Simulated scan of single mutants.
Amino acid sequence: MRYVQSCAALALIAATTFGGAAFAQKGTGEATGMAQRAEKPAIISMSGTVKDTKIGPCKLTTGRSAEGAHLIVQSQDKVVNLHLGPSEAVGDVLKAAPVGQQITFEAFRTDRMPPDAYVAKSVKTADQTFTLRGDNLSPSWARGRGGGRGQGMGRGFGGCF
Rank of each mutant, 00 (worst) to 15 (best):
Q5M: 15
S6W: 10
S6Q: 04
A8T: 09
L10A: 13
A11Q: 05
L12K: 07
L12R: 02
A14P: 01
T17V: 11
G19C: 05
G20P: 06
A21Q: 06
A22K: 02
A22R: 06
A22G: 09
G27Y: 05
G29N: 12
E30L: 15
G33Q: 04
Q36A: 12
R37I: 03
R37K: 14
E39D: 05
K40S: 11
A42Y: 05
A42G: 03
S45T: 14
S45K: 11
S45N: 10
M46V: 00
M46T: 04
M46A: 11
S47H: 09
S47E: 12
T49I: 13
K54S: 11
I55E: 15
I55D: 13
G56D: 08
P57I: 10
P57M: 15
K59T: 09
R64P: 12
A66Q: 08
E67K: 09
G68Q: 07
A69K: 00
A69P: 05
L71N: 04
L71F: 04
V73H: 00
V73E: 02
Q76D: 11
N81T: 14
L84A: 01
P86G: 13
S87F: 11
S87T: 09
A89E: 15
G91Y: 03
L94Q: 02
K95Q: 09
P98N: 12
P98V: 06
V99G: 06
V99R: 12
Q101E: 13
Q101L: 03
T104E: 14
F105E: 08
E106N: 12
A107S: 06
A107Y: 01
F108N: 04
F108G: 03
D111A: 13
D111Y: 01
P115W: 07
P115V: 01
D116R: 09
A117W: 03
A117D: 07
Y118N: 02
Y118M: 02
A120N: 05
A120T: 10
S122R: 12
V123L: 07
K124R: 10
A126Q: 15
T129S: 15
T129F: 14
L132V: 07
R133S: 02
N136G: 00
N136S: 02
L137F: 13
S138A: 12
W141Q: 08
W141V: 05
A142L: 01
R143L: 13
G144S: 06
R145S: 11
G146Y: 10
G146L: 03
G147E: 14
G150T: 09
R155W: 11
G158L: 00
C160S: 07
C160A: 06
C160N: 10
F161M: 13
